[in-house]
Write a protein that binds this DNA or RNA. Sequence first.
DNA 1: ATAATAAAAGATAAAAAGGTCTTTTATTAT
DNA 2: ATAATAAAAGACCTTTTTATCTTTTATTAT
Lengths: 149, 149
Amino acid sequence: MFKKETEYALRGMVYIQLQNLKDRRPGVAEIAQEIEAPFFFTAKIFQRLVKFGFVRSLKGKGGGFFLDQEKKDLPLKELIIAIEGDQLFVGCGFGLKNCDESNPCPLHYRYAFIRDEINRLVSTETIQSLAQKSFDNQFSFNSLRESSI
Amino acid sequence: MFKKETEYALRGMVYIQLQNLKDRRPGVAEIAQEIEAPFFFTAKIFQRLVKFGFVRSLKGKGGGFFLDQEKKDLPLKELIIAIEGDQLFVGCGFGLKNCDESNPCPLHYRYAFIRDEINRLVSTETIQSLAQKSFDNQFSFNSLRESSI
DNA sequence: ATAATAAAAGATAAAAAGGTCTTTTATTAT
DNA sequence: ATAATAAAAGACCTTTTTATCTTTTATTAT
């Protein structure tokens, strides 16, 4: 569904906020390990996310990433669009340029329903809402965690 | 949502069946033009689809592509899986390997609903059902067609 | 001040997706 | 038979995605 970059960004952002809730500020090494993403790729992705203003960072000892807790919640959709554009939210299932209500492809109505559901999901869920759920359910991205005795 | 190759395959297959309903057997050139896909890429894709057994072809004068009308309808899902695998139908929204009912990620239940809807759509709709709809609605893939006076 | 730490910047590269082109093989109308 | 037609095969190329690594800059604890 999403690009790898988007998946890593979503996982990483939720992980950061989850740690922030515990008054921690994880660095790239920790994030990459916990979300099971390649270190250097993770570093590059979060560099971009900082530039976008989705997350903040501090260099040096004790540094790491954190979300501005003053800001309002960040819908997944904003993150997704910034990384991979809005094709998933506006495109035709068949990839047709001119498919819409007035000129619907044979898949249009049923596909549009699904597209709307995706839209609804990523508009209502936010990095913060998912982090809170993870916190409440003691969810961990890293599958190694729960397989230990 | 789908890879370009999948989109072209779906459009092309529906176009072939639509023409078959009119007792015609389109060739690569015609298919590529009508579905607005690159000629050589289309040729390559349909070469694969013939090997898969999804469509048949005849070489030489009067040749072209056609669907075996004896066979039962071909669900879109079969075509999609043959081309790009089943990741879309089984994968986690976050890209997690170990996400399921027993260890759900914070997006799991809402994402699973959407995934199931996608599944239902591509399992119930077939190349033939879409071709029939196109026929009934005089739908044409090629947007140039209806913009003519 | 300086040593340790950690992100930023940017160059490089492997793999996958998307696309193009030429040659070969098969078919059919004449 | 043969000329015309059209798909099959396969080599090649470009762009995008997915990484990897090195160097630089900023911060902080000592």
